[in-house]
Simulated scan of single mutants.
Amino acid sequence: MPASASSFAAALNAARDAAGAQDYPKGALYVVATPIGNLADISLRALHVLELADRIACEDTRHTQALLRAYCIDRAGDRLLALHQHNESEAAARVIGWLGAGERVAYASDAGTPAVSDPGARLVAAVREAGHRVVPLPGASSITTLLSAAGSTREGGFVFAGFLPVKAGEREAAVAQLAAEPRAVVLLEAPHRIEALARSLAALGDRVMTVGRELTKQFEEIATLPCSALGGWLAADAQRSRGEFALVLHGVAEAAHQDDGERVLRLLLPELPVKTAVKLAAEITGAPRNALYEAALRLKNESAGD
């Protein structure tokens, strides 16, 4: 057994101890959140249910089988059912049949929480309509992961927009609607479309955004910058166009904080070191410190060029 598998096996034992005594009714669908990148982010209850379930429906059987094997959960291939966006309605009928026979069925998408931007919503609706119980097992989500690092929801909450339309005209129309949204907005994007999204988001100009790439993985990157700068940020490193993306457009109030922050910086920078000026400006205005630091460096460079 590889060393990594051995360490994960200890987690499975801990899951049995921590979650094994809880009630897991038969004839129920268990919606299981799985890691978005870092395998260690799975919950103990999720591990126990994946081992306990009679069947596992999953977006990609190969992906889920790899997760199961990493944690030393032995599951025969005929106990896994592929359930994805192209066959969700048909596969849901099979799941309902198993639930009717009193089996426990778990559903896991490839990464994160099912039925949000991944498949699963039709399955859950069909199971509920058939009169069976749905048990959610919370866990990893790229949405809340990035929001927790963006600091953009202090006022007004947030809106989840997910993936914008693929066609350029429809995507630009969607961005135009987002421009009028005062709350923070969470977007998701695939690597092969991130540059096109950056071109569309450039229309939002100086509105502040936080971009997260490869969240929870070894090469995770999180940056806060104006929407107009996203294309340049991607172009600065060829690796940045790879991996899955989550993005947060900060609320309009946050953008106003940023404008206030830059005005305060212009007053403080001639008198104080950059780090001190940024710290004070962030405390005074509430603007994100990372964005203020970038603004301070820009202002310093502009001053040096004069």
Rank of each mutant, 00 (worst) to 15 (best):
G112D: 10
E170M: 09
G120L: 09
L147M: 08
F160C: 00
V186W: 10
R154L: 14
L204C: 10
R193F: 02
E170P: 07
S109Y: 10
V127F: 05
S109T: 13
L81G: 08
L204F: 11
P191G: 10
L83W: 01
A190Q: 14
V95S: 11
A121V: 03
G162I: 07
A202H: 11
Q85F: 05
G157K: 02
P114L: 00
E189Y: 08
L146T: 07
G139P: 03
L83F: 04
A92Y: 04
L188E: 10
S200P: 07
S89P: 01
I194W: 07
A161L: 01
P136L: 01
V159M: 12
V127M: 05
G169I: 06
G120Y: 03
G151V: 06
E88R: 09
A149V: 08
S200V: 07
V134Q: 06
A93F: 02
V166G: 00
I194M: 14
A196G: 06
A149R: 15
V159Y: 12
L99V: 05
A115L: 05
R104M: 12
L147E: 09
V124I: 15
G131C: 10
P136C: 07
S89V: 15
L187Y: 04
G102T: 00
A184P: 03
E195D: 10
R79F: 08
K167A: 15
L99N: 03
E172Q: 15
T153Y: 03
A203I: 07
H132G: 03
I143M: 08
A150L: 10
G100I: 14
S200R: 03
A101Q: 13
V166K: 04
L201W: 14
G169D: 13
E90T: 15
G97N: 12
